[in-house]
Design a protein around this nucleic acid. Sequence first.
DNA 1: GCGACAG
DNA 2: ATCTTGTCGC
Length: 232
Amino acid sequence: MTDVPPDWIHPPDLAAARAAQHAIAARAEAADRLAEVPRLVAGVDCAGAARGRPDRIRAMAVLLERGAPSAPVATGLVEGVPAFRYVPGFLGFREIPFILDALAALPARPDLLLVDGHGLSHPRGCGTATHLGVVLDLPTIGVAKSPLVGKPEGELGMEAGSQVPLVWKGRRIATVLRSKRGVNPLFVSAGHRVSPETAVRHVLDWLAGYRLPEPTRLADKLAGEARRLAEA
DNA sequence: GCGACAG
DNA sequence: ATCTTGTCGC
């Protein structure tokens, strides 16, 4: 992470941010370049602050080891004041500065990173997952709870495991996945160094009875608990 | 011009 | 994302 342009992390404005996204997307790798069976997998997510309070956010990184699910090997928590307000399509610039610190607090680099948000299923092919992947040169997968762009192609079955492609401008940009019966689907997209098929395979692999895969589920839960404790 | 819009 | 208890359903 030494040859990363400053604008990729702290662009002065949205115009620079947009240019950075195009540059990052051009460097994103669509082919698999990761371990067949990742041993250390991390999940990251951010929690905001209760309204009425300063615009602070907390980034939580959770490190899990294959075989020992739901029992984090380690966690990293970071709090700060984001430089950007939330603007659809530019979420990465608001959260990534803190996510990078949260990941740096972990004792080891993960073999794979699951991100709460989109990867390639983004207007410029540069969702937070892709952004993080290129900056860290780490395999990443985007796991979003709602679409940013695109429409599901066809009817998604009600059974767990049902899938249908998310299409935008004639392109398949993500997989709409029913991770569990009776819940809204997940939008799984490739981030960096992971193919669309592999992305879905790993999400299914780390599912443990909940809508979200463990890495992201725990990061989401722990970030929320940290917020409660801090504001209590 | 109008509506949509990850977290 | 956040505001929030009970409640319907498998």
